[in-house]
Amino acid sequence: EPLWIRPDAPSRCTWQLGRPASESPHHHTAPAKSPKILPDILKKIGDTPMVRINKIGKKFGLKCELLAKCEFFNAGGSVKDRISLRMIEDAERDGTLKPGDTIIEPTSGNTGIGLALAAAVRGYRCIIVMPEKMSSEKVDVLRALGAEIVRTPTNARFDSPESHVGVAWRLKNEIPNSHILDQYRNASNPLAHYDTTADEILQQCDGKLDMLVASVGTGGTITGIARKLKEKCPGCRIIGVDPEGSILAEPEELNQTEQTTYEVEGIGYDFIPTVLDRTVVDKWFKSNDEEAFTFARMLIAQEGLLCGGSAGSTVAVAVKAAQELQEGQRCVVILPDSVRNYMTKFLSDRWMLQKGFLKEEDLTEKKPWWWHLRVQELGLSAPLTVLPTITCGHTIEILREKGFDQAPVVDEAGVILGMVTLGNMLSSLLAGKVQPSDQVGKVIYKQFKQIRLTDTLGRLSHILEMDHFALVVHEQIQYHSTGKSSQRQMVFGVVTAIDLLNFVAAQERDQK
């Protein structure tokens, strides 16, 4: 057995438009009618409502009807409940999964919650491996369901041993009777949507819809739904939504950006999952974080739909894509998950301010006199920076000697690579993860907040409520011999709460 199987392995699926269902090699399930009293909570997966979006479509000038398939009504709160249950049931049916076995899954959280929910009911041990950027709410729900959680670096490539995929496979090879159901490759993922989600949409719309818009992560949702719609409703256009920084969209030119990270969760990847059939997507749109969270908040405030950030991405694209539809036509959007997962993220004004998705003037509360002053007023001194090749031991000596707790790590040209902190280095040394002679590049981390000289002290204040420091950066445009230009970030300084307090105190003292 291989040590790991690539999540982007070539698909062996034989589905073709027009091929009889009787030739399918898979076990198919028909939607079942729910009894009045459910035998367990797993029976509350599927049969989610279709809700008309009344205000947002009109606000953006849509002539067509805009409908939302509300997947956050599933038992675990997301569309991923469907595939989690289906993968477990299919693994039980073919004898792969037996009582007492362990389920391991690399996930952005929602599939993990679905699997942990099913594992709690069915009696399996469950280990979820997820990147650090995923919300604390997801972690809390997983723990409450009895799952064990392993976190991995957000910026690790999918084929790196440190990625959530790599760590999951390492655990599988170490733990007896453990299984990775593997949402990236498992046919049960798109089949769950082909058999149930798509049929529900067709039934709820009486077979009449002209466009379907869905955000894409593993691709199982859009693949399964689109294949069924292509068979039953061939005139329906399928629109895929991919965040900026991901590479799922086609044509490839759409993916060209210097951005590699994004805040919206559960969609987009740096590889093409095996289950994603991009041939059934008629057109791709890219979405960005700001519009995703703005539209998610709009869905909550104006439509009462308590959905997550990827739902915002989907609707932001839908109001663009559906401009081509006329009166009497219908566009369906998939709202994948609930706001429950993001209470401390985009639902929080403070978080939105820190990330730059909300401006101070958007909030009406009274601010102190210094709130709208610029960061450049602080008069920061030149920063202490270190090269990635310097040793951890030497870096600790320098920081202690100069009285700093942290320093930016830059390359020879001064471009920011990340940050090192005294606390992080000492804990890594004590844990045996690094040696004093190791290069400081081994303990770089990139989960820090950046701020510009033109940003306000109010925004800085919000950042420092949650973080010990902020890195002050400025952009530099560099022209190359080819005539092309590129933008790079340079370090201007490091600012802490002490710097802000000293500035405010000094100004008030001078005024007296």
Rank of each mutant, 00 (worst) to 15 (best):
K367A: 15
E290F: 06
V264T: 06
N424T: 04
A316T: 08
S461C: 14
L248N: 00
E290P: 14
I396E: 08
S481P: 06
P383E: 07
C331D: 00
I396V: 13
L248T: 02
N255C: 03
A506S: 12
Q406T: 13
D282W: 07
G304C: 00
P336L: 03
Q259W: 06
P251W: 01
L380Q: 12
A431T: 13
K367D: 07
G441C: 07
I300G: 01
Q259G: 10
P436Y: 10
T482A: 14
A321Y: 07
T344K: 07
Y479M: 14
P243L: 00
V275F: 02
V434F: 15
F503T: 14
H480L: 10
S246L: 01
I498L: 15
E253P: 05
S427R: 10
F503V: 15
W369R: 07
E265K: 04
D455H: 12
A413C: 14
E250V: 08
T391W: 03
S461E: 12
Y342S: 02
G309F: 02
R350M: 12
L305P: 00
I334M: 11
L460S: 08
I390E: 06
T314N: 06
E360C: 09
L305A: 00
T496I: 14
L363K: 10
L429A: 04
K449Y: 15
G245F: 02
F295V: 15
E291Q: 14
Q476S: 07
A296Q: 03
L358C: 07
G245K: 01
F448S: 13
E252Y: 12
Q259D: 10
T391E: 09
Q259T: 11
Q256V: 14
A497Y: 10
D289F: 00
D455P: 09
T395G: 06
I463F: 15
Q511F: 11
H474P: 11
A249P: 05
Y269P: 02
I451C: 03
K345V: 01
G312K: 00
K355L: 10
R488Q: 14
R330Q: 12
G309S: 05
K442T: 14
L347Y: 07
R330M: 12
S461I: 04
G418N: 08
Q478G: 15
S287K: 08
G312A: 00
K366F: 07
G414R: 14
Q507I: 13
H462C: 12
L399D: 04
N502E: 13
M490G: 15
V415W: 14
I451Y: 11
L453A: 09
S427W: 09
W369L: 09
R340Y: 05
V386M: 13
L399F: 15
K355R: 14
I398V: 08
A407I: 14
P436C: 14
D499A: 02
G328E: 05
H462N: 05
E290H: 10
D405R: 09
W369G: 09
V315P: 06
D270N: 03
V494A: 13
G240H: 00
K286V: 01
L500T: 13
L373M: 08
Q511E: 13
Q487Y: 11
L399G: 03
T389C: 08
S428V: 15
K320W: 03
L347D: 01
M466P: 12
S485L: 13
E244H: 10
E263S: 02
T261L: 06
Q447I: 12
P243K: 01
Q439N: 15
W370G: 03
F469I: 09
A506M: 10
V339G: 08
Y269T: 05
K402C: 09
K442D: 15
T344V: 03
D499C: 14
L426T: 10
A296S: 07
K367I: 12
Y269A: 05
V504Q: 08
Q507G: 13
G245H: 01
E303Q: 06
Q487D: 14
E291K: 14
N255T: 00
R278K: 10
G266V: 01
R278S: 07
E412P: 14
E290M: 13
P408Y: 00
R374M: 11
V420K: 01
S381D: 13
L457W: 00
R509M: 15
R400T: 04
F357W: 07
L384D: 12
V495T: 14
D405Y: 07
P388C: 04
G268S: 00
R340C: 01
H480A: 15
R278P: 04
L254H: 08
L305E: 01
Y342M: 04
L430H: 11
S310Q: 03
K359E: 14
G328P: 09
S338R: 08
I444F: 02
F492E: 15
I390D: 10
I334C: 06
Q511Y: 11
E263P: 03
S437F: 14
K345H: 04
H462F: 13
G432H: 14
Q511S: 11
V504C: 08
